[in-house]
Simulated assay, not measured.
Amino acid sequence: MKKTLILSSALVLAMLAPTAFAADGSAGYIRAEVGQSDIDVDGFGSETDTSATFGGGYWFNQNFAIEGHVGTLYTESVGNDTDVDLVSFGAGIAAKKNFGPAHTGFFIGGRVGIARLTFQVREDTFDVVDDEHSTKPYFGASVGYDFNPRFGLSLNWDRRQAEAGGLDADIDTIALGGEFRF
């Protein structure tokens, strides 16, 4: 709960940052990503599902940022109004190299951080009846295009790992992301 409060506070502070861009490209941002996760569990093969994450952070200059995210990487209905979810909640740093002026043109990027992945069993949509979680590093890479200093689109790949019930899982996600800077 404390980690959730800390990350939420950091995101709110990033959103309250000045709306004018500094000459060095510093800016707060929010980001949404929708894509496909491939979950490979020890000896059980792999499963795929739609992923959706939301996050935000602060670009200290045009190349480096701190960020946080929350989202679902996998949801499976197992019948009787019961779902199994894989939820990611994390914080990290991001780096980006634009091939135009600050926050414009084509770019390549990367990110690393710590994510808490939680496997949840839910009944009746919102009642969590069981969960297991693990906290591990994550990393990713992206390519994209910033249409102007305030908005860009990217194709992102992220790798997360999790442990639950004595099993290890590798989660690879490919997603289309949109970023709004303020």
Rank of each mutant, 00 (worst) to 15 (best):
residue 79 G to V: 00
residue 85 D to N: 14
residue 89 F to H: 04
residue 64 F to R: 00
residue 96 K to I: 09
residue 77 S to L: 12
residue 79 G to S: 02
residue 75 T to Y: 09
residue 100 G to A: 15
residue 75 T to I: 12
residue 59 W to S: 06
residue 77 S to A: 15
residue 97 K to T: 07
residue 58 Y to H: 06
residue 75 T to A: 15
residue 65 A to Y: 04
residue 63 N to I: 01
residue 99 F to Q: 04
residue 103 H to S: 13
residue 90 G to T: 04
residue 92 G to L: 05
residue 70 V to Y: 14
residue 78 V to A: 09
residue 83 D to N: 14
residue 83 D to P: 09
residue 68 G to Q: 01
residue 59 W to I: 08
residue 61 N to G: 04
residue 103 H to F: 14
residue 98 N to D: 11
residue 63 N to A: 05
residue 88 S to D: 11
residue 86 L to C: 03
residue 90 G to A: 07
residue 93 I to N: 01
residue 64 F to G: 00
residue 105 G to M: 10
residue 74 Y to I: 02
residue 58 Y to W: 06
residue 69 H to P: 01
residue 80 N to E: 00
residue 96 K to G: 04
residue 101 P to E: 13
residue 70 V to S: 08
residue 97 K to D: 01
residue 90 G to L: 01
residue 73 L to H: 02
residue 64 F to C: 02
residue 81 D to T: 14
residue 57 G to I: 15
residue 74 Y to W: 15
residue 88 S to K: 07
residue 65 A to E: 07
residue 84 V to S: 03
residue 57 G to R: 02
residue 90 G to F: 03
residue 63 N to V: 02
residue 62 Q to N: 12
residue 91 A to S: 04
residue 104 T to D: 05
residue 63 N to Y: 13
residue 59 W to G: 02
residue 72 T to P: 06
residue 56 G to H: 06
residue 94 A to I: 02
residue 88 S to F: 07
residue 106 F to N: 05
residue 102 A to F: 08
residue 84 V to P: 00
residue 63 N to W: 11
residue 73 L to C: 04
residue 88 S to V: 09
residue 76 E to G: 06
residue 72 T to V: 12
residue 74 Y to S: 06
residue 61 N to M: 11
residue 77 S to K: 15
residue 106 F to H: 08
residue 86 L to W: 00
residue 92 G to Q: 10
residue 60 F to I: 06
residue 93 I to Y: 01
residue 104 T to M: 12
residue 100 G to H: 09
residue 81 D to I: 13
residue 94 A to Q: 13
residue 95 A to T: 14
residue 80 N to I: 03
residue 91 A to H: 01
residue 104 T to S: 13
residue 71 G to C: 09
residue 80 N to D: 04
residue 62 Q to K: 15
residue 91 A to F: 10
residue 80 N to G: 12
residue 76 E to S: 14
residue 83 D to Y: 08
residue 104 T to N: 05
residue 99 F to N: 03
residue 95 A to E: 08
residue 78 V to P: 03
residue 58 Y to S: 04
residue 78 V to M: 08
residue 106 F to C: 07
residue 104 T to H: 05
residue 99 F to L: 13
residue 105 G to S: 09
residue 85 D to Q: 11
residue 60 F to Y: 11
residue 79 G to M: 01
residue 81 D to S: 15
residue 65 A to H: 06
residue 67 E to P: 01
residue 92 G to H: 10
residue 77 S to H: 15
residue 92 G to K: 09
residue 86 L to N: 00
residue 84 V to E: 07
residue 105 G to H: 08
residue 68 G to A: 14
residue 60 F to L: 03
residue 105 G to L: 10
residue 91 A to D: 02
residue 93 I to A: 13
residue 64 F to Q: 00
residue 63 N to C: 04
residue 86 L to Y: 02
residue 76 E to F: 08
residue 91 A to I: 03
residue 67 E to Q: 13
residue 102 A to V: 10
